[in-house]
Design a protein around this nucleic acid. Structure first.
Lengths: 195, 195
DNA sequence: GTCTATAACGCGATAGAC
DNA sequence: GTCTATCGCGTTATAGAC
């Protein structure tokens, strides 16, 4: 994988981001050095600074891109219709999206405290927007009598935590397929919100 | 808080562990230096090594103690009786226990990857034991016809993730009391397992 | 039990050659 | 665009004085 002196590359930028994502997810932002990232890509540490102004930007950019991608993906997947239909779609989309990018998800949840204040604030806005997607669905359903939850905000947090938890134990070669898992979770979400 | 040269202390050991726990929870294990911990306690960095062989032991000891404490606390709180009674007790105990020690909980979930291999394996045994507590309750209830879940293992993971998620948003001065939160969560857990 | 001093090393980031 | 070399600083852990 090591690259020779003088070789050129239009794709080093993406490789840097991929290596950083993999290493941050595995060892944590603070525990990973620029030299390690460079080693994965096959360049020297100094070369990384052609692609990122600093280490912090590497973290912020991948988190922001991830959240943007999550919001856009849901926006595309939202079927509209009844709160029940939308809640099912949200559940299935959340599980599928999250299981497809375990590293990005892990970082998005674990590295918030390593963001500088301003970057943290920006990511929090995106996170809040996603939480509001679910909260609005639950609120609509509650108003229409389709759901029966004691507290909409709390139910929203509970559902997201439950769904995101899948990423901590899922293995590709595990006992259940993603589809089976999504079905089981939808069954539990449906019951939990009193639908 | 700074301590004067030559002062003695039988309580420096606990202070070191408390400071380390607070700092690890706030900034992450890898981002915290021994100098920072020493500064919080009011000693020089070298003095810490009277209380811990190294930084890694500081992390492992607090995580192991936390898990031991969790298992013991549940053991004391387990009312026995029907699966329904035990599931309610488990739900309430999990929420109360976790909200009472946010720093230790945060570390237990976030710093697993900073444990050396052998230490990680030991903590995993303790985590697994706790998961089995819930799984056994669900299994008993499923067998007795009190619960109706599609998959006992998966339901266990879902319930734990949902309950633990409280720690990410709970604030002491928030809208709901711990008691109200526990009630709402028990309502959702009860429904989710089809009781 | 805590101090100061230091060994041995790694860090992020930059400069300038090619 | 990548290299080598380096700056300035921080890291864990230890040694020996008090």
């Amino acid at each position: 994988m090591a690259r020779k002196t003088g070789s050129h590359s239009e794709i080093t930028g993406p490789l840097v981001r991929e290596a950083a994502e993999r290493l941050f997810a595995r060892h944590g932002y603070a525990a990973v050095s620029m030299r390690q990232i460079a080693g994965e890509v096959g360049v020297q540490a100094g070369a990384l600074y052609n692609y990122t102004p600093d280490k912090q930007s590497l973290l912020y950019d991948m988190m922001s891109t991830h959240m943007q991608s999550l919001l856009q993906s849901w926006s595309d997947a939202d079927p509209g219709g009844t709160p029940m239909d939308r809640l099912q779609a949200f559940t299935r989309h959340h599980i599928h999206f999250h299981l497809q990018r375990p590293d990005a998800v892990f970082i998005a949840y674990m590295e918030l405290r390593n963001l500088e204040a301003q970057n943290f604030a920006r990511i929090e806005v995106q996170r809040k927007a996603y939480e509001m997607v679910l909260e609005n669905i639950l609120q609509d359903g509650q108003g229409a009598g389709a759901f029966h939850v004691g507290d909409v905000k709390l139910a929203g947090m509970a559902v997201i935590a439950m769904l995101t938890g899948v990423t901590t134990w899922f293995r590709d070669d595990g006992r259940l397929s993603v589809e089976e898992i999504a079905n089981h979770y939808w069954d539990m979400v449906r019951k939990a919100v009193g639908a």
